[in-house]
Design a protein around this nucleic acid. Structure first.
Lengths: 214, 214
DNA sequence: TAGATTGTTAATCGATTAACAATC
DNA sequence: TAGATTGTTAATCGATTAACAATC
């Protein structure tokens, strides 16, 4: 803690979950060691990049041998904070909120859903995977008596800024934002946005280009 | 058509939807012109980057004046293929499939949902926003008699590769992949993946770093 | 030991930023 | 015309790839 290697670029960080995924697959297939060269072929990247990326965090390999799959898998999991026991709450019990609440993959990676909030009377009290939907007015009390690390924002962009600020004020560490707007908070809170429309438009651009090329 | 400016980098393309979003907001607020400098301040990027990005596609501005908001908005929409009338089908009527089907934002941007498919008897025949869920066996017939540009893959990773290949074979132009795996098809089809877990893990890394820094 | 493969430095490539002439 | 702001070239910065000595 405290001492910090020089800042790792966002490009590297965004590749870590992908490494983690491929290593998990290798582990499932009982492969115990892998070289950067073989991993690079499976992943479609250069071996050099893999070695550079990993060496941002320390030397996990061994010359002449390569990397121990299980060890590397766990190390990356550790770097990503997957063993910290982070807890999440979902704001917005609409269709997307339901989908995210019902997705079991997040828990598999160590993220525990502990609360769901909404503003609409109709959904309050409903249970999703054993978790009761609470009224948004209970947010402050809930967070004061429960550790909440991450707020998942599955609400329309109109209300998101106010909620985001409330969560920041309550000491929530990160926001996972699904609303169609950028969040620009003056608070020490991390924001990761998933702009689904942006992603779809990117795909749209690419198929348009393909058609033009012909 | 046919003649192609030198390939625009993916970094630029991924910024286009964001420009589009900000321009849409300006338009709503009845702002008719904007300079790269002012837009850069609103978006938190450099004016130079905005001008460079836009000039990959042509000169949309005017010296001494800036950019006409409505014109630029429409041009970017055009570049992104939003006026092509692209149609989509969703594969997988689970929680995520439901959420995507019920999301009206995509239609607002020109993507028309025309079909939903699943394999489970229980959901076949159900209607989501007026669209009947069909059995996956009807996929080939449906696509042969209906134009389908984009397949949205909202199914577990186990079945996704086979379905993706079937869609590619049927001439679908793009796949929007939500399953937790990379698709590596040998077919002339564009793939855009949304790995939600990867995004969450990136956030997790960042809040972990913040805690370590203290 | 010989072979393999890392960790790491150096070279290359590409993307971003700065600068400014062109021009509305 | 003078002022503003683009389009575009040049400079800088950072990320990726290549190379290779270190070492298991």
């Amino acid at each position: 803690m405290g001492e910090q290697q020089k800042k790792v670029s966002i490009a590297v960080i965004r590749r870590l979950p992908r490494y983690y995924r491929y290593l998990g697959d290798l582990l499932k297939n009982d492969i115990t060691r892998i070289s950067s060269k073989e991993l690079s072929q499976r992943m479609g990247v250069t071996a050099s990049q893999i070695r550079q990326d990993l060496n941002c965090f320390g030397g996990f390999g061994q010359q002449g041998y390569g990397y121990n799959v299980e060890h590397l898998y766990k190390e990356i999991g550790n770097i990503l904070g997957l063993y910290k026991g982070y807890t999440t709450i979902i704001i917005g019990a609409g269709h997307l909120g339901h989908a995210l609440a019902n997705h079991t993959g997040f828990e598999k990676r160590g993220f525990k859903l502990v609360g769901i909030f909404d503003i609409k009377k109709e959904v309050i009290g409903e249970e999703i995977r054993g978790i009761k939907v609470r009224h948004i007015d209970e947010l402050e009390d809930f967070i004061k008596s429960n550790k909440v690390d991450i707020g998942i924002l599955a609400i329309p962009k109109e209300g998101v800024c106010e909620i985001a600020q409330r969560l920041a004020n309550l000491g929530v560490k990160g926001l996972w934002n699904f609303s169609y707007t950028d969040l620009d908070l003056c608070a020490p809170i991390q924001v990761e946005s998933v702009h689904l429309s942006d992603s779809l438009m990117t795909l749209s651009y690419q198929i348009t280009q393909n058609s033009n090329d012909e």
